[in-house]
Amino acid sequence: MKYLLLLAPCVLTVLTPLYNALTPDFLGIPLFYWLQLLLIPVSALAIWAADRVAKAQP
């Protein structure tokens, strides 16, 4: 489970063709830019979650 959490944002990140587009935009920022920026806190959260899972395991 820990590894899944760590891997998920990475997989999303390398699937570039999925987000290589201008729309849907956010406040005028094209998808390509805001999605990658958003993936940053998402991946930090995923690492935090993975750490919680790791600590909970004996």
């Binding site: 891997l7 990475c10 390509f32 830019y33 990658q36 993936l39 991946s43 995923a46 690492i47």
Partner: peptide
């Protein structure tokens, strides 16, 4: 343009790897 943004996915990939 967009190609210069590679620095963002590059830094996303680093941290899970470093954690382990």
């Amino acid at each position: 343009g967009a190609y210069g943004f590679f620095a963002v996915p590059y830094t996303i990939l680093i941290y899970p790897f470093l954690y382990l």
